[in-house]
Amino acid sequence: MPELVDLLSLWPVVSVLASHLGLGDLIQLARVNSEYRAVLHGFPPPAPRRVELASPDQGERPQAVREDLFIGRHQTPLWNQLKARANLDCTEAMHFQGNTTGLCRYCSMPVCMTCIVRASFAHPFNVWRSRTGYLCIDCWTTGNPHRDRTYRQAPEKRTSYNSPPGKGDFCRCKVNDGWLCWRCRQFQVRDILLRRHQCVGEACSNPVGPGREQRCICLWCDLPIQRFVSLKAKQSL
């Protein structure tokens, strides 16, 4: 007997369904499991999930990110067509009204400007300043990416960081780039004090160490933030 995921593989069915869904609902549907994600993006069917058994006391240990999930390569023609058919409705629980709606930088769920402004008044922390994270010397020199990064492209095991005044790409984010839903605003400021002292590198919990301002990255664009330091501080580097 056909299941819902089988019907979603038929374009006449899925295209009509998408036109009756909000974009947030469509995104949530694609996140049900890897099979739904593959069908809605036009990926090949995922391989059966394999689990590596570590030891009897540790239980199951999942493998690293699987290649057949195509992480970071989700902007396929099929997925973009389905998103274009869906309704761009704000998904905030307390949404009342608002016309200008965009996608959250972190979770991609639609949120309107009215809800963003309301959240800013309710909890007036500076989301632009709190977007920073710091790396320890080892993670900076080895190019270890930060653990909460978003996958805008296929994940890389190493990132090229450049410390000022070196050459390279640096963060160019502006205040208006901080289009965040309520949950992700809370996520960004979570443990903000801890982030000042603990490295945000993937699988790293080392202290940041001295000179952290020279190893500062943006959690929005994943690029280093160029800091202007005094001449005395530069001479001490």
Rank of each mutant, 00 (worst) to 15 (best):
G42S: 10
L82V: 05
R73T: 05
L23P: 02
I71A: 03
L103P: 02
L53K: 13
T101D: 13
H74Y: 03
A84M: 08
T91H: 05
L69K: 02
L21V: 10
A93Q: 09
R50F: 08
A84L: 07
P56I: 10
L40I: 05
R31Q: 14
R73S: 09
E67D: 12
C90V: 13
L26D: 08
R61M: 14
N80C: 09
P48E: 12
P77L: 05
N80V: 06
T91V: 07
H95E: 15
A30Y: 05
F96D: 12
V65W: 10
L53P: 12
N80R: 12
R31I: 03
H95M: 14
P62M: 07
P44F: 02
T100K: 14
L69C: 05
Q75V: 01
L88Y: 04
A86T: 00
D25Q: 15
E52T: 02
H41E: 00
E60V: 10
V39T: 11
Y106A: 03
N33C: 13
Q97T: 15
L26T: 07
P48W: 08
Q97Y: 14
L78M: 07
Q63T: 06
T101Q: 14
S55C: 14
R73Y: 01
G102P: 06
R49A: 04
C90W: 13
V65D: 12
M94L: 11
L40E: 00
L53E: 15
A30D: 11
Y36A: 01
A47G: 09
G22N: 10
N87R: 12
A38G: 11
A18E: 02
C90R: 12
L40D: 01
F70I: 02
A93T: 10
L78A: 03
N87I: 07
I71G: 00
Q58G: 11
A18N: 05
H74C: 03
A47S: 13
E92R: 07
P56E: 13
P77R: 04
V32F: 11
R37K: 05
N99G: 12
G24C: 09
E67V: 10
Q58Y: 11
G24D: 13
L82Y: 00
P44Y: 01
A93L: 08
L29H: 04
I27L: 15
R66S: 11
G72F: 01
V39K: 05
S34V: 07
G42L: 07
P48A: 07
M94P: 05
G22F: 05
A84K: 13
L21M: 15
V39A: 09
P62H: 06
C104I: 08
T76G: 02
R61E: 15
D25A: 15
R49M: 06
S55Y: 12
P56F: 09
T91K: 04
A64K: 02
R50P: 07
F70D: 04
K83R: 01
V65L: 11
R50G: 10
F43W: 09
G98C: 09
E92T: 09
A18S: 15
R105M: 08
P45V: 04
L88I: 08
L23W: 00
H41Y: 02
A86Y: 00
A84Y: 04
V51L: 15
H74K: 03
L26V: 11
H95F: 15
D57F: 06
L23S: 06
F43A: 06
Q58M: 12
C104R: 08
Q63M: 04
H74L: 03
D25S: 15
K83Y: 00
G42C: 07
A38E: 08
G24R: 08
E52Q: 04
E60I: 08
E35P: 01
G24F: 09
D57R: 05
